[in-house]
């Protein structure tokens, strides 16, 4: 996911919601009371849940059982174990515990750095008047269309020349750079929503841009930062292409996704490893996503989407 397009979906104004809910509740009832409609909705919901559930159950079944029978047999004859997770996390061949650390070490700076940079840049584009501002902003906005594939080969040779190849720095730098155009665009939109009078007032009090940025704007932007933060977290944690390109050969740096993809290729029939490994890589983004879903949806609707 790297380029972007604006999503202009209108969000319903909150204050009108109550009366509408009442008025349309009747209509909704009619809609789902038609059996065909309920069946379609149910089938879709099942198709979107059962595959994940199947692999989750599998990841807790003993190795032999996984090979002998489908996961659905565990529903009538439950036999569960933590051996697979033990093997995947601490076993010599896989050692996902280390990879989990790698993913974490990659992700935190790759979220913090681009958000900070983008906040500063977005502030300048929104509230500092300087020559060429609009042109520059459009140029940065337009950079969103560049697929990251287009940058990878020259970027890799730049890193090799700089002696950084195979270190965390290459991944931190790359993710930060790739995130900037979208982050600036999104945060700029949020910043523009803040009333100009607020900033004028601060300026009257003699505050400089740096002070206004930290004391007036940042506190108001927390929801926007959270929205993009969740976004960027999921993007970096789940990324395969950047990590594979810049750290594919460095076992001390590779994140979970790279190893899971590798396992799927080399030990594609060892489902006790693959199932547990996949869930080790899925669990943190899932928790983050579920607890911060509100912000994520807001970010999705307000500005744009990484593509």
């Amino acid at each position: 996911m790297t380029t972007t397009t604006p999503v202009m979906a209108p969000v319903p104004p909150d204050e009108r919601r109550l009366t509408r809910t009442e008025r349309r509740a009747v209509a909704a009832k009619n809609k789902l009371s038609s059996p065909a409609a309920s069946i379609i909705a149910l089938v879709i919901a099942a198709l979107w849940t059962v595959p994940t559930l199947g692999l989750l159950i599998t990841s807790f079944r003993p190795e032999l059982d996984i090979r002998r029978s489908g996961w659905w047999t565990a529903l009538s004859d439950p036999q569960f174990t933590l051996d697979n997770y033990n093997e995947v996390l601490y076993g010599g061949a896989t050692n996902f515990a280390t990879l989990f650390v790698n993913s974490l070490v990659i992700t935190l700076p790759a979220v913090v750095i681009p958000i900070s940079l983008a906040l500063l840049a977005a502030y300048a584009f929104a509230w500092i008047k300087f020559p060429g501002r609009n042109l520059l902003f459009v140029a940065v906005f337009a950079l969103q269309v560049v697929p990251i594939q287009v940058t990878l080969i020259p970027l890799l040779s730049l890193y090799v020349d700089a002696g950084l190849a195979g270190s965390f720095w290459t991944i931190w730098l790359s993710h930060s750079i790739f995130a900037l155009p979208l982050a600036i665009f999104l945060l700029h939109n949020f910043m523009k929503e803040i009333p100009a009078s607020l900033i004028e007032a601060a300026r009257m009090d003699g505050a400089g841009h740096v002070k206004i940025f930290f004391q007036v704007l940042l506190p108001l932007l927390t929801p926007a930062i959270a929205a993009f933060g969740v976004f960027q977290f999921l993007w970096v944690w789940n990324d395969l292409l950047v990590a594979l390109t810049f750290a594919g050969g460095a076992p001390d740096v590779v994140p979970l996704t790279v190893r899971v993809a590798e396992l799927a290729g080399t030990r594609g029939s060892d489902w006790y490893l693959l199932a547990a490994g996949a869930f080790v890589s899925i669990v943190l983004p899932l928790v983050v996503f579920l607890s911060l879903q509100r912000y994520f949806v807001r970010g999705l609707l307000a500005g744009s989407v990484k593509g």
Binding site: L55, T58, A275
Partner: peptide
């Protein structure tokens, strides 16, 4: 109902690939 369909968005494409390969 929405959360169920929304959930795969948090899963990496690698993870989803493994889920469906199974």
């Amino acid at each position: 109902a929405k959360a169920l369909v929304f959930l795969p968005m948090a899963i990496s494409m690698v993870g989803a690939g493994v889920i469906w390969k199974f």
